[in-house]
């Protein structure tokens, strides 16, 4: 196993507040890592720094041995990191299929000339885009199949929006996928379904997965390793059992027990 993602000493300040305060973590290739922590621990900021939405103030982020600090988000996506957002951000007025097709943008080339003249190469590429998009929608079985693919994204149910966001990320053909609270707002049945999908992403698609999650059943069910953060630092990591019983983690979630 090799280190696919390595975050070392990353600091990100917003005004006086350090959302990330010398964060150190790494992710091995083929691993499923859960990042947990109370609200404001810096989990989403971590994702935003890794995907290039925020430049870090200090420290380095390496993907597959190469520093990706300073790259634009679309360049990082092209290198093979895809993500979803904590609050769902779809292209609401585009169809479900088109949403997924946008994911293929970074893997394809044809430009204005191809669009206007439509030579065979462009037609083939367009077919391929459609094919990959369909395949990534098919990851969720019948949930995003059939007539739904021609519907605009905004008519989807909440759970399906989350699924589509993941499918769009899968359509970028990533090596590493970052899922930001993929089960937020889902009912218990949908949550369990999502847990299985996360495992399938690794087992069937060969992806490395980093997931921010609050639902401990999901964390327990998917994680090879759990990383707990608080105040922009890693406070504990290891197996679910180890982290769940770590006194610092318990304190972060429940507060310090009154002495005496």
């Amino acid at each position: 196993m090799s280190r696919l993602l390595e975050v070392s000493g990353v600091v990100k300040r917003f005004g006086g507040l350090a959302a990330l305060d010398g964060l150190e973590l790494h992710v091995e290739e083929g691993e499923i890592v859960s990042v947990i922590g109370p609200n404001g621990a810096g989990k989403s900021t971590l994702f935003n720094v890794v995907t290039g939405l925020y430049p870090p103030d200090e420290g380095d982020v390496r993907f597959d041995g190469r520093s990706i600090v300073g790259l634009r988000p679309h360049q990082i996506t092209k290198l093979g990191i895809a993500r979803t957002f904590q609050t769902v951000h779809l292209f609401a007025n585009m169809t479900v299929l088109e949403n997924a097709m946008v994911g293929q943008h970074c893997r394809t080339r044809s430009g204005v000339f191809g669009a206007i003249v439509r030579p065979p190469s462009t037609r083939r590429e367009e077919e391929r885009i459609r094919e990959v998009a369909r395949r990534s929608l098919a990851f969720f079985g019948p949930r995003l199949a059939g007539y739904r693919q021609e519907q605009p994204a905004f008519v989807l149910s909440y759970a399906n929006r989350r699924r589509l966001e993941i499918a769009r990320a899968l359509a970028t053909e990533p090596r590493l996928i970052l899922l930001d609270e993929p089960t937020a707002g889902m009912n218990p049945r949908e949550t369990l379904e999502m847990r299985d999908h996360i495992v399938r992403m690794r087992d069937e698609l060969g992806l490395t997965v980093v997931v921010i999650e609050h639902d401990m059943r999901v964390v327990k069910g998917v994680s090879d390793r759990v990383i707990a953060c608080d105040y922009g630092r890693v406070i504990a990591q290891g197996t679910y059992e180890a982290v769940a019983h770590d006194p610092q983690v318990i304190e972060a979630y429940l507060g310090r027990r009154a002495v005496g």
Partner: peptide
């Protein structure tokens, strides 16, 4: 076309379009 889709994605949400590789 691919170009039109990219523009559309950008119109819908610029930051997300960027994060999706546009």
């Amino acid at each position: 076309s691919r170009v039109g889709r990219a523009w559309n994605a950008m119109r819908e949400d610029e930051q997300v379009a960027d994060a999706m590789g546009v």
